[in-house]
């Protein structure tokens, strides 16, 4: 398995995730796209760990997973809160950033 192929796969997944963040309006889907981007990064870390021959890359990927888990918890709580007040999970609705 050529590591550069893995990294290319990781780049493709990352880009798809980015596009998903940009085009989807459902906050939960957007969130899942962010998770996809994180996973793509993890994949790159794993590939790099293998290329360079030490486990630090895997440790970093592990930390990314931990942080992602924490992020998911808080993020979903925020989504639920927003949904409760606005009855919608669309991220276009809270465009109050404008004011």
């Amino acid at each position: 398995m050529n590591p550069s192929n893995v990294v290319i796969l990781s780049a493709i997944l990352f880009s798809i995730g980015a596009v998903g963040v940009l085009v989807r309006r459902n906050a939960i889907i957007v969130f899942m796209c962010v998770e996809l981007m994180l996973n793509a990064a993890n994949l790159a870390f794993v590939a790099f760990a293998r290329t360079s021959g030490n486990l630090d890359g895997q440790v970093v990927a592990f930390f990314v997973m931990v942080v992602a888990a924490a992020e998911v918890v808080v993020g979903l709580a925020i989504i639920v809160t927003i949904f409760r007040t606005r009855r919608s999970a669309s991220i276009d609705e809270p465009n109050l950033l404008k004011y």
Partner: peptide, 26 residues
């Protein structure tokens, strides 16, 4: 892919944490 890339621990964590916990939370 993680497991194939000599990261069996991460592969397991991926399945357990992500697929099992995070995605179910979603």
């Amino acid at each position: 892919l993680y497991i194939a890339n000599s990261a069996p621990f991460l592969g397991m964590v991926q399945i357990i944490v992500y697929t099992g916990a995070v995605m179910m939370l979603f």
